[in-house]
């Protein structure tokens, strides 16, 4: 074999090994029963202020414009459906979007916290992604931390006048990566390593989930760009209507 051929085969082998092992690259929901009780409670409590803020902001908008209720419900259903559909993947494994970045860009981070926890309940009950006891931890990583990062990155890049597509891509991908880091951290503090403590454990979790989560973040970024571009060219009036949900008064 020539040198380039050898290299190609080696690369293909590495690729096949890393992706072949992971059976299903779901968004990284912590499964039911995987966290000890005290951590379930702690993460639940940490979510409360964000959820309360989201709840009050939603209630205020709904009291003023009753139509927002239907709009919010459609948006929640949209996030659920998008995250339950199989997305294209380069390797043929079955994977799903988290939809957090897209949600944050469309509806703003405060509305997404409430929609996110509802979507997570539905995902747990209807799809068995995640669980009831791990709801707090999953809400914190997917409906609070991820969307806030996405939104922050997007606003920041917009201010710096970065290309729009690039900023949408980075917002969605970084939000996804941050979710993955937070989930790894949540697992690491529950199960510190016997050799090296929480730090070593964090590195292990990050490493183990990296082969599925990093490509997923890239794909999610690409798809979010496609969706936003599609919306901006066909539906700018509707987009304005949505911005209005996310407005904090």
């Amino acid at each position: 074999m020539k040198k380039t051929e050898k290299r190609t085969v080696a690369l293909a082998a590495v690729f096949a090994l890393t992706f072949g092992i992971a059976p299903a690259a779901n968004a990284m929901h912590i499964m039911e029963g995987y966290l000890p009780v005290q951590y379930c409670v702690i993460w639940g409590i940490l979510c409360v202020p964000f959820l309360a803020a989201g709840f009050f902001s939603i209630r205020r908008t709904i009291n003023e414009h009753r139509k927002t209720m239907i709009l919010l419900a459609m948006s929640g259903a949209f996030i659920f459906v998008i995250s339950s559909l199989k997305i294209p993947s380069a390797t043929g494994s079955c994977s799903h979007m988290t939809g957090t970045g897209l949600g944050a860009l469309l509806f703003g981070p405060s509305a997404v916290s409430i929609l996110g926890i509802i979507v997570l309940v539905f995902q747990a009950v209807l799809l068995a992604h995640g669980g009831l006891t791990t709801l707090g931890a999953n809400t914190f990583s997917m409906a609070i931390a991820g969307p806030f990062v996405s939104y922050g990155v997007f606003r920041l890049l917009k201010k710096c006048r970065v290309n729009r597509r690039v900023s949408i891509f980075l917002a969605a991908a970084l939000g996804d990566l941050f979710t993955y880091c937070v989930t790894s951290f949540q697992l690491a503090i529950c199960y510190p390593s016997e050799a090296g403590g929480v730090g070593a454990s964090l590195i292990k979790f990050l490493g183990v989930f990296a082969p599925t989560q990093i490509p997923l973040a890239v794909i999610e970024g690409l798809i979010t760009v496609a969706v936003m571009i599609g919306l901006e060219s066909y539906a700018s009036p509707e987009l304005k209507e949505l911005r209005f949900i996310g407005e904090e008064k």
Binding site: L71, L106, I223, V225, A226, I229, G230, L231, A235, E238
Partner: peptide, 12 residues
């Protein structure tokens, strides 16, 4: 991407 944006449009 096209499917998702058309889906949101229809949903609205």
């Amino acid at each position: 991407g096209q499917m998702a944006s058309a889906l949101l449009l229809r949903a609205l």
